[in-house]
Amino acid sequence: MPESSSGPEVLLFTDGACGGNPGPGGWAYILKHPKSGTVKENSGFEAETTNNRMELMAVIQGLTALTRPDVFVEVLTDSEYVRKGLEEWMAGWKKNGWKRKEKGKLAPLKNDDLWKQLDVLKAQHPHMKLTRVAGHSGHPENDRCDELAVAAYRER
Rank of each mutant, 00 (worst) to 15 (best):
S4F: 08
S4K: 08
S5G: 10
G7A: 06
L12V: 12
L12F: 15
F13W: 15
F13Q: 09
F13K: 05
G16I: 00
A17L: 04
A17F: 07
G20S: 03
G23V: 02
P24Y: 06
G26R: 00
W27P: 02
I30A: 03
I30D: 00
K32D: 03
P34F: 15
P34E: 09
S36T: 14
V39G: 03
V39F: 06
N42Y: 08
F45C: 15
F45L: 12
E48N: 11
T50P: 00
N51L: 04
N51T: 02
R53L: 08
L56Y: 04
L56C: 10
V59D: 04
Q61F: 05
L63K: 11
L66E: 00
L66M: 10
T67M: 13
R68S: 11
P69Q: 09
D70T: 11
D70E: 11
V71T: 10
E74R: 15
V75D: 00
L76S: 04
T77F: 01
K84W: 00
K84F: 05
L86F: 04
E88H: 10
E88M: 12
W89Y: 02
G92V: 03
W93P: 00
K94E: 15
K94H: 14
G97I: 03
W98H: 10
W98T: 06
K99N: 07
R100V: 09
K101V: 10
E102W: 12
K103S: 13
K105D: 10
L106V: 07
A107H: 10
P108E: 13
L109F: 09
L109P: 06
L109I: 08
N111A: 07
D113T: 13
L114A: 04
L114Y: 04
L114D: 01
W115V: 03
W115G: 09
W115A: 07
K116C: 06
Q117K: 15
Q117F: 08
Q117W: 02
L118T: 02
V120E: 13
V120D: 09
V120Q: 03
V120L: 13
K122R: 15
